[in-house]
Amino acid sequence: METSRPVVVKRMPDKVNRQEAQKFFADVQPFVTSDRPQLVFDLSQVKQLDAAGVEMLLRCVAEVMKRDGDLKLASPSRQASMVLELTRTDRLFEIYASSTEAARSFSGFLPNAMQSISAFPRSGADGTQMAA
């Protein structure tokens, strides 16, 4: 499962509104449109994420998928996690606890590094989580 292609890690700004999203997309466009891109977006600084930001993420993942690549998210802040969960876009991404682990995950499966954003329901109560 070794890969020689580079993994690009990009930190998202603290406020991702329409204007910032456009600016961010313009920044990452060369990487997104490369051949089989491997991208990690670090969401640790994100304090505000609106629909335009989510739309930008969806646009990025659509472009990346077209080129047989993948986009993973790393260390989402509480606010970002909530918005992603609310819009049910979190299930479209592999989400990791840190950008290092997200980058490493392109070359091997790291079950313990996956972000535990999805509680496993059991008889109406929350049981164990998806990963430690």
Partner: peptide
């Protein structure tokens, strides 16, 4: 799937996980 048991998926790992 998270490799907490000794059951390993029957098939090829085409991408990590």
């Amino acid at each position: 799937l998270l490799q907490k048991t000794s059951i390993r998926p029957q098939g090829e790992q085409v991408r990590p996980g």
